[in-house]
């Protein structure tokens, strides 16, 4: 064996060839569709927040960040998956781990509660867990009026329990530094809970007090959903008017355009065209506003 160094040019050429081979094989691997599909569910190795808190040593905040990223990915991935049986089984455990590791992770409480409360298929439909999460946040930071407001919000929007919602808004209004509009919101909720107008006020206030751009965007999306509901009501009226005038249902939007009811094909506030099928007006499934929330019913006293 000689200790004499070889020509560096040859070594570089060999390395370049080998790297090209690696890239080529990776491309073959990609074309083959990657590893065989596995139906193994996502797994959470450590479920105990207390155990993880100890294991994280002085990296609790960083580990909390990783669990938060995982929660966001789990929620988004499941929501966008083609699987009709969408389960969000790891969502609460991940949020639980995040907030135990960093009890002041405000966005994890606020955004996490929105994720948890969202009705299937857009979410697990667990407003009870959303409230439990926010309640823990309130225990960790008893002066945070936003959590009390968010609990009222879950009662309002997903549980349609306007009395509880109004009670929580009233409670939130009594916190130090709480904005004045919470008192008005509580009164409006009791008087008009369930109406689209009061829902709009609720989301507008939510957008105004949102702690992050992402929460604000979510509120804007909700407001757009309410706008879409209004637009769809108007479109339904046009379809009815067309049917009464001509005796038949329109076969598509083009019939309404030709009849002068519409100037162009109608699209929702996110830009996706509405669907007209057998006289029924629907939101396009590809729209980022899909699915629309179940509209709260007006509180009847």
């Amino acid at each position: 064996m000689s200790g004499r160094p070889g020509c560096p040019g040859v070594a570089l050429a060999v390395m370049a060839t080998l790297m090209a081979a690696v890239i080529g094989l990776q491309a073959v691997h990609e074309r083959g569709g990657g590893p065989p599909a596995s139906d193994a569910p996502e797994f959470l190795y450590v479920r105990s927040p207390e155990a993880m808190r100890r294991l994280a040593l002085s990296y609790q905040s960083l580990v909390a960040d990783l669990y938060w990223i995982r929660a966001v990915q789990h929620y988004g991935g499941t929501r966008l998956s083609a699987n009709p049986d969408k389960r969000y089984e790891l969502l609460y455990p991940l949020l639980d781990l995040t907030t135990t590791l960093e009890p002041r992770f405000n966005v994890a409480y606020l955004f996490g509660s929105l994720f948890l409360a969202e009705s299937p298929p857009g979410g697990p439909g667990r407003p009870d867990l959303a409230i439990a999460l926010l309640d823990r946040g309130l225990r960790a930071q008893p002066s945070k009026w936003e959590f009390a407001q968010a609990i009222g919000f879950v009662h309002y929007w997903w549980r349609h329990d306007y009395e509880q919602a109004a009670e929580w808004f009233t409670r939130a209004a009594k916190f130090p530094n709480a904005p004045f509009w919470l008192t008005t919101l509580a009164a409006t909720t009791l008087a008009e809970g369930g109406s689209r107008g009061s829902s709009r006020i609720l989301w507008e206030q939510f957008a105004r007090s949102a702690e992050t751009e992402a929460l604000r965007n979510e509120a804007v999306r909700r407001l757009q959903q309410l706008d879409a509901m209004d637009q769809m009501d108007r479109l339904r009226q046009m379809v009815d008017a067309y049917r009464q005038r001509g005796g038949a249902l329109p076969s598509g939007w083009i019939d309404l355009v030709r009849a002068g009811y519409l100037r162009a094909l109608p699209a929702d506030p996110a830009g996706t065209p509405y669907v007209l099928q057998d006289g029924a007006v629907m939101l396009g499934r590809g729209s980022r506003l899909f699915p629309l929330p179940i509209e709260p019913q007006r509180l009847v006293h």
């Binding site: 960040d65 938060w68 990223i69 966001v72 990915q73 966005v107 992050t212 751009e213 992402a214 929460l215």
Partner: peptide, 8 residues
């Protein structure tokens, strides 16, 4: 990836 928590 972080829903607005980049800086944190």
């Amino acid at each position: 990836l972080t829903a607005g928590q980049d800086v944190k």
